[in-house]
């Protein structure tokens, strides 16, 4: 699924500056515990979370997660956005909850981390 499609499905806004709308994201994962994301997140995926601090960006960075979506209309502060920009991580904000966001993306065909675990 293209970033631009994700943006439309989540009626989201990109707050990390310029990005390539054609970038493909295949996998979605969601948790508010970063160790879970470190353990199960897949490179190139999108992380949906209601947690908001710079450790979310650090987690995405070390785990090679391409995009982060903050939910429920929360707006990240400058430190978070700057760190994301510096590390080429795309940051979305959506007014939807984690539940609604995951549901919409799954319905539109985004795969999940666990789906891939089972395939192995």
């Amino acid at each position: 699924m293209k970033l631009i499609e994700i943006k439309e499905i989540l009626e989201a806004e990109v707050v990390s500056g310029e990005y390539d709308p054609e970038i493909e994201i295949e996998i979605g994962c969601s948790s508010d515990l970063m160790s879970e994301i470190l353990a199960f997140g897949k490179p190139g995926s999108i992380l949906l979370t209601s947690l908001m601090n710079i450790q979310v960006i650090n987690t995405a960075n070390v785990a090679d997660i391409k995009a982060v979506c903050f939910v429920m209309g929360k707006i990240p502060d400058e430190n978070i956005i700057n760190l994301a920009k510096k590390n080429d991580i795309i940051v979305f904000i959506t007014k939807f909850t984690t539940f609604e966001s995951c549901g919409r993306l799954y319905k539109n065909g985004l795969k999940s981390c666990s789906y891939l675990n089972f395939e192995k």
Partner: peptide
């Protein structure tokens, strides 16, 4: 802050 769920050391072991 999203940590402290007792997964840190097991994760280190995993990776």
């Amino acid at each position: 802050l999203g940590f402290g769920a007792g997964m840190g050391l097991p994760n280190i072991k995993k990776f």
